[in-house]
Amino acid sequence: MLIVWFFAAQALPPYQLPGPIKVGDKLAWLVATPAGLWHVAASIFHVAAAMLASFVLGFFVALLPLYLPVAVIMVDGRFTPFVNSFPGIGWTMLAIVWLGIGTNTVVFSVTIILLPFMIINLREGVRALDRELMEMAGSFSRSRARAFRLIILPSLFPFMFSAMRVSFGVSWKVTLTAELLGGTTGLGYLMNVARQELDTAQIFAVMLLIVLLVYAINRLLFDTAQRHLQLGRVGAAS
């Protein structure tokens, strides 16, 4: 495939299809120079901050109906479908107006775009809560805080994990868009610059790097965490 790419690039003008060597150069600039690394780090920060914020918010919204049963339709029938169908770009555009161009806009819009993914996964977990276990906890204790810490929270762990995993996959794509439109740093910003300068090699390098980053983090972080999670369930004493 690399060879096909190489020869195709020879035949086409570089602004349409840059050769693998040129893209490799750009990739090296991204990961081996302070200036390049600065943008990579900025994107990682945007993704991490937005994931954390949307997780906290989503957790709160998803657990609200558990303690306030009257809020079920409010959450499942109004709030979640609305944030889920509202276009992501719209949030970015509004954030630019409200917060100006910069980190705030990127983190804010990515947070809201990720929110429905978090809520949908965590709601699934809340719905799957075992009523019998809750009653068991109630028979031993009248403390809601302890029942939450010892029963509800551990029951939700697998769902928190899948919420994080799903949002992680989405977060890179939408962070790129948000940075491109409303950021001053990050890989999306670099793409915007490259777009204006018709630097197609740079665009290729950024896309390649993102594919590699997502793959690596999925493998190193999420797959490892999942193995530990499953081990803990079945028991180490096998």
Binding site: E132, M136, F140, I151, P154, S155, G235
Partner: peptide, 17 residues
């Protein structure tokens, strides 16, 4: 709090030994 229950099903949590 001077009472404890044993239910028809054991109701153990799967994440503890």
């Amino acid at each position: 709090d001077s009472i404890s229950y044993v239910f028809q099903s054991p109701r153990l949590v799967p994440w503890r030994n």
